[in-house]
């Protein structure tokens, strides 16, 4: 429990550091391109277009299942997909970069007095800016898709914060393990590739039979985040309240990850340099 407090204290005390370092992080990631940060928008947009073509147009539309039923409403595939996948690009990048954050930067940090636990955090924050830009663009698109600004938008900050806390907790674990055993990064890469298909981003898993499979899929906390974003952007429901059991489950998982991650991180962080 002490290590959890240490980690949380470091996060808050070093918040200024996190903000500044994440800006440099973004700068150095994009310094080679002429369009710079713009690629952080263009890249997801290209992927969204191809996903729409393959899944929406190619598979679902031609099978006559172009609409998705959600909360008693029929929603065309494209807005359904777009409203969820907008958070995927953040989760995807944050998991991948977060897990290699420590071992790629420890040389640069090279001071034991540096609050190590903020390394994954500032890497995740540098991805957050991209996410916020993409989210803004996507929200503008939704105004033209027939899903105008609505009261349910006020859930969005809650889901953005939930996503950040979840990713930070997860990255504490993954960054520690992949510093010690570099192979873990490879495993993470394949798992993340699978994750997009196991979460409700590309295809609607609402009517899977037998029902147990739906429940198993919901065990994945990213499911909660995707559906939360969707409910907020499409203006469907007060998701965290209406699914309060699921909200409790999500926070239970997140807090467990945070506790486990903190213990692991604090146990090994003095020796990170030795594992290089």
């Amino acid at each position: 429990m002490r290590s959890v407090l240490t980690v949380i204290k470091e996060q808050f005390q070093s918040f200024y550091l996190v903000r500044r370092l994440s800006v440099y992080e973004m700068k150095s990631a994009n310094s080679n391109n002429y369009l710079g940060v713009l690629w952080e928008i263009i890249n997801p947009m290209i992927q969204i277009a191809i996903y729409w073509f393959v899944f929406g147009f190619g598979i679902f539309h031609s099978a006559g299942r172009g609409d998705v039923e959600l909360s008693g409403e029929l929603i065309p595939y494209f807005p359904w997909m777009l409203s969820g996948i907008v958070v995927w690009f953040f989760i995807n990048q944050a998991i991948l970069q977060g897990s290699k954050s420590v071992y790629t930067r420890i040389k640069m940090i090279s001071k034991m007095s540096f609050p190590m636990s903020v390394i994954p955090t500032f890497v995740i924050f540098s991805k957050l800016y991209q996410h916020l830009m993409l989210l803004a663009v996507v929200l503008v698109i939704f105004q033209f898709l027939g899903y105008p600004i609505n009261i349910f938008y006020i859930q969005l900050p809650y889901f953005i914060i939930s996503t950040i806390v979840f990713l930070v907790a997860l990255s504490l674990i993954t960054s520690t393990i992949s510093t010690i055993v570099r192979d873990f990064q490879m495993l993470i890469q394949s798992l993340v590739r699978i994750l997009i298909y196991l979460s409700p981003f590309l295809w609607p898993p609402y009517h899977l039979q037998p029902e147990i499979i739906q429940i198993i899929m919901k065990l994945n906390p990213i499911y909660y985040l995707a559906e939360g974003y969707r409910a907020s952007i499409l203006g469907l429901s007060w998701y965290p309240v209406e699914h309060w059991e699921y909200t409790l489950y999500f926070w239970g998982i997140t807090v467990s990850l945070l506790i486990f991650g903190s213990i692991l991180h604090v146990k090994f962080r003095d020796r990170f340099v030795d594992f290089l």
Partner: peptide, 9 residues
Amino acid sequence: VNAGLNTQL
């Protein structure tokens, strides 16, 4: 000699 500098910046 090899002070940790970020070569991209």
